[in-house]
Every structure is written in C-alpha cells, then in structure tokens.
Write a protein that binds this DNA or RNA. Structure first.
Lengths: 238, 238
DNA sequence: TAGTGGTCTAGACCACAGA
DNA sequence: CTGTGGTCTAGACCACTAA
C-alpha cells in the first residue's frame, strides 16, 4: 500500500489502531481477535505486515498468540498484571502483591515531588490513596500513591472503584507500559513502624516508583515503605 | 530449505552459528559483518530468514544494525557492557560503575552459597575476587565475587587478567545474557564500615547478584555491600 | 552514485489445537 | 478434518549513509 497519507511504517500504524481497539474495550480481555488473514484483508495490507504488527503487540504483552489456537487479548486488570510492577518475592521466589486494605481516596493539588515524578504543573489536581499490603498475616508495606486527576475523571466521587492501578487503568481506557523504581534505605517513622509491626527507626526499604502508560505518560507515583523480613526484592537486568 | 537434519527453526540455527562467530572472535568487536544478502547466499537461505536471525541478535545486543551503514559487532568488553549490570545511578541519573581497586584473585572450592547461586557441586573449584568501587573520590561499594573455575581456565596463574566480568567473559569466549539481583538491608560490619567510610552498624544495601551467559549458565555470583549516599538504585520493570 | 538495512508484498508449506 | 499461527521463500521498492 502506497504511503499516501503517512510515511510512518504501516505496521506501526496498524499496531496503534489495534491497540486502540483493546484500550477502548472493543476487543475484550480473554477473547480471540480475528485471524491474521482476515485482519490483513480488513486493512488492505499483506499478511506479513499484519503479522509484524501483531508480533509487536505480543512483545508489549497486549496479546497472547498460540499456534493452532489464535490471538487472544490479555487481561490487563488480572492478578498477573497487578503483580507485574512489584519486585518483592517470597522465600519461594514467587512475586508477592499481598492483600490490600484501602484507606479512602482523597483529592488534592500536586506538591513539588508529585510534579517532578508525574510531570505535572504546580497546583494540578491529583488523587491520593494509601495502600497497606499484607501477605500471610504480615503487613510488609505501606504505600502512598498519587495519580494525575485528569487521567481518572470522577475517581473520588463515586464508589466501587478499585485501588489497584492495573484495574483503574483498564477502567479508564489506559494501557500500562513500563515502570521505574528508585530504591533507598529509610528509617521507619513511629506511625509507619507501628503499622509494620517493627521498632521505630528500624531501617526499611524506601521504594519510589513511577508507572507509565505504553505511550510514556506517568500514571502513578508511589512511595512504598517496606519491611522485607524473609522476603526479598529481586531486580532483573538484561 | 527442507528440515532434513533438524526440525529446529532455521533462523535459530543461523543465530547460533553467527553468535558463535562473535564469541570465538572470528568476527571482531566493532567490525561490520557481511550484508544480509551475502550471508543468506553463504548459508543457502532466503534473505528474509537471515534477516530474522540478525534481528534476533540485535535484540540480544550482540550486533548493531543501521540502515545505510551495515551490521556491526558490539564490543562486549566495553565500558557500556561493564556498566550494564549495575543499577546504581548518580544524581544525574546516569549509571555508575566506578573505578575499581583490585585485591588479587584467589582460588578455592565452592561453599554452600556458591553452589546454590552458581549451580555447582560441593568442592567444585572457584575463583574469588574482591572489588572496591569508588566514584568521585568516594568508596561506595565493596564486592566479593565468585566464578566457576572451569569457565576461566588459568585465571589465577597468569597476570594481566582483568577483574571486570565483561572483559573476562570476552577473553574466554563467553557472551553474557541476563542477571538477577536480590536486594536486602544489612548492617555494615566493622571492616566494611571502615572501607566505606561510615560508622559501624550503619544500614547498607546488600546486593546479591548472579550473571548468566546467553545460554543461561551462571558465570558470576557477587555480594555487594553498598552505601548509596546521594546515589540511588534504579530498577526497571516491563 | 553505489551499497546498506528497512519495509512490504504474495504466496507456499508446516506444526499444532480442537471439533 | 479445519483453522490457526509459525516458518520460509523470493522478490520489489524505499530511506539512509558515505564516498
């Protein structure tokens, strides 16, 4: 197909269109999408080009492809996806997310740190939520998270919203990309120490994490105060 | 080409052969390799298949490909590659490796932890080396590293060997793949504290890292004791 | 201008899953 | 058995680089 309207590679344009169908929910989680051939015909491209677009989406973990079965939309709100941005692992090496007891969501305006991490301007509205993570009856992390309010319209008003970023993103038609986490050592303040069941001033991990959309826009900034005990933090490098 | 001798995908077989040429030094670092068409003819495959193999090698960071220029072998021993497995960053966000003052290499037999991390059997021979990392006149990390002796024949005998794992691997015809690092909090022992210029029992990061070859064989296990100060540890998640 | 990798096409056949 | 994605082929043309 001649690049009449855009010189951008066809397979990238295709990926964007197909990704949009997932983000909007036109293609639902867990459901098979049309096969390569049909999609290629629909868009008037050759099968190989469509294949390249779908392969790229598999790399972005938007779809699963399996020989003989088909191409399936991944569930972005599932447990897997929630755990994806937690590097804390139990003694068995499995990722831990932990049950969360939620304090209510509050609304406010961005402070300096929120502006820097979420790339906002001063006074931009944000939602804030505290999450307490427990695993096997032990509280191991207290999180204070902030999200740009523009991305989550009406979040504080209504009930029934999840506090988990993966579900929130799904509900608001956003797809999560990568995250960065800065790790340092902190001392537990009295209230944090009490919540974690440790002595005040015990050294703990300070986990400063920013999650971005697939497009690179910051979605959530979170400060986690974590007492590992027998668990461990595991980073992979490639 | 009919899969007479092997049912393994052609492009994987091609990747392995081409990778071997880099590992052995037949194709030297920084030098351009033959173009797609010539390689395809040499192996009697179609250009598209050769392209897939080369694309895979680019993903494994073995080569750089640039339109209009060619395909170039990456230098596995370069500064870039050394820093690749360090997640410590300065205030400017750049990765820090730091100058290393080397204590000499010693030989020994694997202890329990070395057996577990390097997948060795008890009493298997290992080389050990302590590295002291400094950045801008500050010592920030003390490393104790262990390597399976079978992979680095004659390492303790001769001089002139590097202590950097990237260079050592290159000299011994190995290509490095991924690494995993477990992070926890430790207290500085008196000798570590003195080396790091901090008070004894100051909380520090304990960095327990295993580097593997591209094939998944453990190459180096390292225990780093790290005092961050204004630097930070940065983990990426995808 | 010549040579490179990047994109795109239009098929073929194979391996695999499920009815 | 049918339909799926996986592999492989054999070209075409384009964008970029460097001489």
């Amino acid at each position: 197909m001649a690049p009449i309207f855009s010189t951008r590679p066809l397979y990238l344009q295709l990926r964007d269109v197909l990704t949009e169908r997932i983000a909007t929910g036109e293609w639902k989680a867990g459901v098979a999408i049309p096969n390569e051939g049909d999609l290629a015909r629909e868009f008037g491209v050759s099968p190989g080009t469509m294949r390249k677009a779908l392969g790229m989406m598999e790399g972005e973990r938007l779809v699963d492809r399996r020989q003989g079965r088909g191409t399936f939309v991944k569930d972005q709100g599932s447990e897997d996806r929630t755990i994806r941005f937690s590097n804390i692992r139990g003694a068995d090496g499995m990722r831990i997310s932990g049950a969360v007891t939620q304090a209510h969501i509050t609304e406010g305006t961005a402070n300096d740190l929120e502006c820097a991490r979420l790339r906002l301007r001063v006074q931009d509205p944000v939602y804030r939520v505290r999450r307490v993570h427990s695993h096997e009856d032990r509280t191991f992390m207290i999180e204070d998270a902030s999200m740009p309010a523009v991305l989550f319209p009406g979040l504080a008003d209504s009930n029934g919203h999840s506090h988990r970023i993966a579900e929130l993103a799904q509900q608001h038609g956003m797809l999560l990309g990568k995250a960065e986490e800065r790790i340092s050592i902190d001392q537990a303040s009295p209230d944090i120490a009490e919540a974690l069941g440790i002595a005040s001033a015990t050294p703990i991990l300070l986990l400063d994490r920013v999650i971005e959309t697939l497009g690179g826009r910051p979605v959530e900034w979170r400060l986690g105060r974590c007492h590992l005990a027998s668990d461990s933090y595991l980073a992979e490098m490639r």
